[in-house]
Design a protein around this nucleic acid. Structure first.
Lengths: 225, 225
DNA sequence: TAAATAGTGTCTATTAGACAATATTAG
DNA sequence: CTAATATTGTCTAATAGACACTATTTA
């Protein structure tokens, strides 16, 4: 049976309010999304219902904690999907979020798994459209924000950063040019130490100035504040 | 009394779902937003409740039609505001939209009026935050999309376009440079005719290629499709 | 030594900002 | 003619893309 709800004024109300999260990371140079295996065999994005007296962002963080064990991660509202028939259970709008987590994150929920973000896996509900929307948003913000903070470790080499940027942008960058351009964003600073891993010259380590979401120097065609 | 709703599963559900619209235009080189005078003397953004079997976008268009008489306008989802206490009437999340309309638009609702978008007028609920969010979004998209289509007439001079761009970006542009840069976006084409208005050399008329929302050539630091 | 990875330097094309100079109208 | 607006052209600075070359490590 479909869920329904009626408010105290006598009008039909949404049966519930959902918060779904597109959890992304970069593993082995591939952009991956966290998906949940459902009982009916289909897959879906992690999500949950917004409780009364809870903001949707809190719901998203709660879901993230349940599925990954993480608590302090990059989280940004994406868009709300509210077509009246999007959920077969009833009138359930969903507020979608994007979250970026470190690649070492292991799902704490046994039904959660990493899936290629650009693969062609079918997803339940309208989650495929939500995922697509998330990728578009992320690509657009990549160079104009410090979103990569969420995925990279606290200190990182320019090669590690490049791998993350390439996976998100789905392209390749010339290493010297990438290093120059990332440095001129003003978002990162060298830590002074180096990292040796196998053969090759040791790489300098960097960190982001701000751990919090922040816009970069951005466009030339600037808006006066 | 506060509105409440309970769903068929026994859980508290949102009392209603709202759709609020930030309707913007440029009049006399100023960015203005449509506001509604409420019975209690406060002002608010135009909005309404989403009906069952209606998408929030349809709600937004319905509200727009009621307040302005317009039907085919630029409309884009902005974000959802759903703090549990945002509406004193109860748990009522609001999906906010941005709409851009021609400057000649006269409110058809007697309580609707144009207000300076960057003024300091207080607004009911969290509508001040919604408006601020809308301005930020619009500034960010200005040069990377054809949003100005919604405000400019079907054919327009580069001076008219410049006035709109300057009002949105809250800055001034060098006229020759503005003309060059808008032309190189590839979004507009000359119609061949000219417009004479008062003294001065007649201006060439242009129109946008696409009437529909569309992204421009955009960033150099390009993402491969 | 060779292989591998990191980093510097440079050249060119594009884009942006500023502004001089010219063009075309009304009055 | 003068005032006003539109448009063309040019100069410079910043940014982006490509790539040659040097540096530092492991094996």
């Amino acid at each position: 049976m479909a869920w329904t709800a009626t408010n105290s004024e006598g009008y039909e109300a949404p049966a519930a309010l959902a918060a779904d999260v597109v959890v992304l990371t970069v593993r082995d140079a591939r952009l991956e999304a966290l998906t949940i295996d459902r009982e009916d065999g289909t897959r879906a994005l992690p999500g949950g219902f917004v409780q009364r007296h809870e903001s949707p962002e809190q719901t998203a963080r709660r879901v993230l904690g349940d599925k990954t064990g993480l608590d302090a991660v990059y989280l940004e509202q994406l868009a709300t999907f509210a077509a009246p028939t999007r959920d077969p259970r009833g009138w359930i709008p969903s507020i979608a979020y994007i979250s970026l987590v470190p690649p070492a994150t292991q799902p704490s929920d046994p039904n959660a798994r990493w899936t290629s973000a650009r693969g062609r896996h079918p997803l339940a509900f309208d989650h495929r459209a939500i995922l697509r929307h998330a990728l578009d948003r992320l690509e657009g913000k990549l160079w104009w924000s410090n979103v990569a903070v969420g995925i990279l470790p606290r200190t990182f080499t320019l090669s590690q950063a490049r791998e993350v940027y390439e996976a998100i942008a789905n392209t390749t960058y010339d290493p010297p040019t990438f290093a120059r351009d990332l440095r001129t964003t003003g978002l990162i600073t060298p830590t002074g130490s180096k990292r040796t891993a196998g053969p090759g010259r040791p790489a300098s380590l960097y960190r982001f100035h701000a751990k919090k979401p922040q816009w970069g120097a951005g466009h030339r065609k600037r808006i006066t504040g």
